Simulated assay, not measured.
Amino acid sequence: MSQLHVVCPHCHTTNRIRDADLDRNPDCGSCRGALFAGQPANLSATEFERHTTRSDLPVLVDFWAPWCGPCRMMAPAFEQATAELAPRVQLVKVNTDEAQGVGARLNIRSIPTIALFIGGKEVARQAGAMAAGDIVKWTRAQLARATTTV
């Protein structure tokens, strides 16, 4: 059976999980928190790096800021998308006011922006607020495109 590395959304420890166990609500071996909590994890710059580079799962990131109206409008939709995409995709949020270096390094020019990372590399990006169904559809399309080019 294949094993995957999954980063805990609570303590940010990398866990080894059998692929077959992803759908069984696995817990973190370190903190015992649920690896898939049903809502996106809010990450700092360091945590963002850990999640995108150490997880074998695709990571969908919502770059946002608390003062941004469209970001606040999209937040519930992004959380709803978690229910459909997890556990095969990890959904996380990065506050660009708190993690300015990440936003600058990735050239995030407008928010909200979602970006999909696979194997530590950004494979797709979309700016602007989206509904939950559109987030899911866009993510699945990008995953299908990314797997055909690998």
Rank of each mutant, 00 (worst) to 15 (best):
V89A: 10
P70S: 09
I108D: 08
L43G: 01
H51Q: 15
S30N: 14
R88D: 13
S44W: 03
G120C: 11
G101H: 03
L85T: 06
K137C: 07
D97G: 06
P66I: 10
A65Y: 01
Q39M: 13
G69H: 04
F78M: 15
V6S: 04
N15C: 10
R88F: 00
F48R: 06
G29K: 07
K137W: 01
G38C: 06
V6T: 08
V123K: 04
D97K: 04
S110N: 10
V150S: 12
A124P: 05
E79A: 15
Q126T: 06
V61C: 07
F36P: 11
D56R: 07
T147R: 14
N107E: 15
T13S: 11
L116R: 10
R72E: 11
R145M: 12
W67M: 13
H51V: 13
G128R: 04
I135G: 04
N25S: 13
V89L: 11
R105F: 00
G119M: 09
Q39W: 03
T147K: 13
R16C: 01
E79R: 08
T13D: 11
D19T: 14
G69E: 15
C11N: 05
R145S: 12
D97N: 10
T113I: 05
F63T: 07
A146R: 07
T139H: 02
T46H: 04
L106C: 02
T113Q: 04
S2Q: 12
G29P: 04
E47R: 08
W67H: 09
A141F: 00
G101C: 05
T139E: 14
N25P: 00
M73R: 09
I135R: 03
N95W: 04
Q90R: 12
D62M: 10
L57D: 09
P26C: 09
E98L: 13
N25R: 10
D62Y: 01
A83F: 00
T82H: 02
G69D: 11
A146E: 15
A75V: 14
M73Y: 07
V102K: 02
G133D: 15
P76N: 06
E98K: 09
F63H: 05
A132W: 06
F78D: 15
P40N: 09
N42C: 06
A129K: 03
I17E: 06
R50E: 14
D134Y: 01
E79H: 03
D19L: 14
D21T: 06
G128Y: 04
T53V: 11
V59Q: 09
V102S: 03
Q142K: 12
Q80D: 15
D97Y: 01
V102Y: 00
T139I: 13
R32L: 11
F36N: 13
P112R: 08
C8Q: 12
E122M: 15
F36I: 15
A124Y: 01
V123M: 07
G133W: 11
R24D: 02
P9Q: 13
R109H: 02
